[in-house]
Computed example of a mutant assay.
Amino acid sequence: MVKHVPFTGDEKQSLHASLDRHRDAVLWKLDELDDDALRRPMTPSGTNLLGLVKHLATVEYGWFCTTFGRETEPFWFDPFTEDMLVATSESTTQIVEFYSRARAASDATIAELGLDDLGTAWNGNQVSLRWVLIHMLEETARHAGHMDIVRELLDGTTGDHPHT
């Protein structure tokens, strides 16, 4: 079922619903593809669907958890240089579950903090939860768009949600 941003929701609810909508589009881009297709580099820089999911999980943990002093799971890779790279030892299930756990940790932060609550970003800037929600909405939408292009190149599938 496709999620929609509520027409009369409050600011936090609307931002969160929009983020969830794009998160779901990210996962939908993986549907019905085999492991080789998910890992196939489709740009000169090596962009592939599974690498984008790994990256989005990493940045969700970074922005929603680390920024606000909340725990993250230990990464088995260097998050600054390997977050878009998928090793042969990393399974599709491992990456998708990593994204699911990152989303859950982020959702807990969103639920427990107010939009004006502040944290300290990796670069030392103080940022509000509102700013992080907007930033992650932009980041997720941007990469969902990349995934749309990669998926179209793989098998012709387009759109931001399944057509029912």
Score class of each variant (00 low, 15 high):
Lys54Thr: 12
Glu82Thr: 07
Gly119Met: 06
Gly62Pro: 01
Leu38Phe: 05
Ala108Ser: 13
Thr47Met: 11
Asp20Asn: 15
Glu138Asp: 10
Ser128Asp: 11
Glu112Arg: 11
Phe75Arg: 13
Thr88Gly: 08
Phe77Gly: 03
Phe77Met: 07
Phe68Cys: 07
Ser128Val: 08
Pro79Leu: 13
Trp28Asp: 05
Asp35Arg: 03
Asp35Glu: 14
Gly46Gln: 03
Thr72Asp: 10
Ser89Leu: 04
Asp20Cys: 13
Leu137Lys: 05
Asn123Arg: 05
Glu82His: 05
Val150Asn: 06
Leu52Asn: 15
Gly51Tyr: 02
Gly119Lys: 08
Val96Glu: 09
Gly62Ser: 14
Lys29Ile: 01
Thr88Val: 13
Glu73Leu: 12
Ala17Ile: 10
Ala102Trp: 00
Trp28Arg: 03
Leu33Lys: 00
Leu27Met: 06
Asn125Asp: 14
Tyr61Ala: 08
Leu137Glu: 12
Ala105Asn: 05
Ala108Cys: 12
Gly145Trp: 13
Leu19Glu: 15
Asp24Ile: 14
Leu30Pro: 00
Met136Gln: 15
Trp122Ala: 14
Val59His: 04
Glu11Trp: 12
Gly69Phe: 11
Ile95Asn: 01
Met147Thr: 06
Ile95Met: 01
Gly114Cys: 12
Ala87Phe: 02
Ala144Asn: 05
Ala17Asp: 07
Asp20Ala: 10
Asp35Phe: 02
Ser106Cys: 08
Ala108Gln: 14
Met42Lys: 00
Leu30Met: 14
Thr47Tyr: 06
Trp63Asn: 03
Val53Gln: 08
Thr43Trp: 00
Val132Gly: 02
Glu82Met: 06
Ala37Val: 07
His135Met: 06
Phe64His: 02
Arg40Cys: 04
Ala105Asp: 02
Glu112Tyr: 11
Thr92Trp: 00
Phe75Glu: 07
Val59Gln: 05
Asp116His: 11
Leu113Ile: 03
Gly51Leu: 05
His22Pro: 00
Asn125Leu: 10
Arg103Gly: 10
Glu90Cys: 01
Ala17Cys: 06
Val59Thr: 14
Ala25Met: 03
Tyr61Ser: 11
Leu30Asp: 01
Phe68Pro: 02
Glu73Thr: 12
His143Cys: 02
Phe80Glu: 15
Trp122Cys: 10
Arg70Trp: 06
Asp24Ala: 15
Val86Asp: 07
Arg130Gly: 09
Met147Lys: 06
Val127Pro: 00
Pro44Phe: 06
Thr43Ile: 02
Thr43Val: 04
Tyr61Cys: 06
Leu15Trp: 08
Tyr99Phe: 13
Glu32Cys: 01
Ser14Val: 08
Glu11Arg: 15
Ile110Ser: 01
Met42Ala: 04
His22Cys: 07
Val132Gln: 09
Phe80Met: 12
Ala37Lys: 15
Met84Ala: 13
Met42Leu: 12
Trp122Arg: 13
Arg103Thr: 09
Thr109Ala: 14
Trp122Tyr: 14
Tyr99Ala: 13
Gly69Ser: 11
Ser106Tyr: 05
Leu15Phe: 15
Ala102Asn: 04
Glu90Gln: 11
Ala105Phe: 06
Gly145Cys: 11
Glu97Phe: 04
His143Thr: 02
His16Ser: 14
Thr120Gly: 02
Asp148Pro: 05
Phe98His: 15
Pro41Met: 05
Arg21Ala: 10
Thr72Val: 14
